[in-house]
Amino acid sequence: MRTERNLTRLDRVFARLDREPERPTHLDVPRMSRHRVVLFSATLAFYLAIVVAVLTTSWLVRFDWQVMFFRPYQQWPEIHAFLDYWVVLGQRGPTAVMVAAWLGWRSWRQHTLRPLLTFGAALLLLNVTVGAAKLGMGRLGPHYATTIGSNEMGLGGDIFPSGHTANAVVTWGILAYLASTPRTRRYLSALSAVVSLSVGLTTVYLGTHWISDVFLGWAAGLLILLALPWFEPLITRVEALLFTLRDAWRARRFGIAPAQAPAGVTAMIPQRAALDEEPPLRETIGAARSARAPAYLAPGPHTARSERTPVTPAGSRRPPGADRVPRGTAAARPVAGG
């Protein structure tokens, strides 16, 4: 008879929330390959071409005005309420909180700060590059345009490139960048592309951006994602520094050196090796997990008592003695009488 408990959905959730015994070794860190360099160069050329096309008041500016006079929000007013909420997926505040919460859980579970540090570096690059371009070109939006047919550049605006579009590309694309497997990276890349494209077109529908603003926002966000491997060594050094400061603070708090920490404290305070050294094995954590299985996992199959094969110990279980007679032999009895 076999007794086996099926895992419920809550059991699977608890199993998923459990921390890894040590930092996973299969996490792939993207590198600046030749393919990525080619994509970065092509995207940069596209970025510069959009800027030149707007500065020279080319056909792209005329197309901007045609879309503006078309007024999509008047052509399809029934979807206006929905798109007012959908465009929030490109706002930096709400999306940053959602993605940071997810990456924070990943950092805690995998014993690494790389997801959060990479996301912070991407947002810093986004604020610096896109913010500088907005203030430098000073383009006015469709609702504040002054002269029909002009590019509205240098008039104190801040909508070129589109911040909503660039933020959507970076915020949702960072999930694909930090994916653990190539398959997950492909799926998340497609999802982030759909979200960023739809957010950019939503700003055009609402009349808050020119179509050229959206083109430049897509290019600006993609440039940041493609350039992130150049910042991976710096992210690694910052992570090692933060872990070193954490270990030193915990050592001062417990009043002992990190190397002399007792077993119980070592299990709670895993040490961090330097960059040029291999990370130490977390034997205390692994041993604690292997000694006792988690309560939420189903117990392994076992046999009933009736199915077990009886084992008879060989020989006698009584201690040997000089006056004992082996079992099965006749003992000498005293002769009565006489």
Rank of each mutant, 00 (worst) to 15 (best):
R185S: 08
V265S: 10
L188V: 01
A287I: 02
A179F: 00
G156M: 00
L234H: 12
G264T: 13
F254E: 14
T284P: 00
A257P: 10
R186V: 08
P262W: 02
L242E: 05
L234Y: 12
F215K: 06
L228E: 07
L275N: 08
V214Q: 09
N167C: 09
Y205C: 07
F160V: 06
L242T: 07
F243E: 15
T202Y: 14
R250N: 12
T184H: 10
L226C: 05
R253H: 10
A248F: 07
A248V: 01
A190R: 01
S162E: 03
A257I: 02
A190T: 07
S150P: 03
G200V: 09
S198D: 06
D247Q: 14
A220V: 14
A219R: 14
I269T: 09
I148T: 13
M153Y: 00
I148A: 13
A288W: 00
S212I: 15
L242Q: 07
L188Q: 06
A259V: 15
P279Q: 10
G157D: 02
W210P: 07
V265N: 08
E239A: 08
I256T: 12
F160A: 05
I174T: 15
H164V: 03
A145G: 09
L175V: 08
L223K: 04
P280Y: 03
G173M: 05
L245P: 05
T202L: 14
G217D: 05
E277R: 09
I235E: 09
N151I: 13
W230R: 15
V194K: 02
I211A: 14
W172H: 06
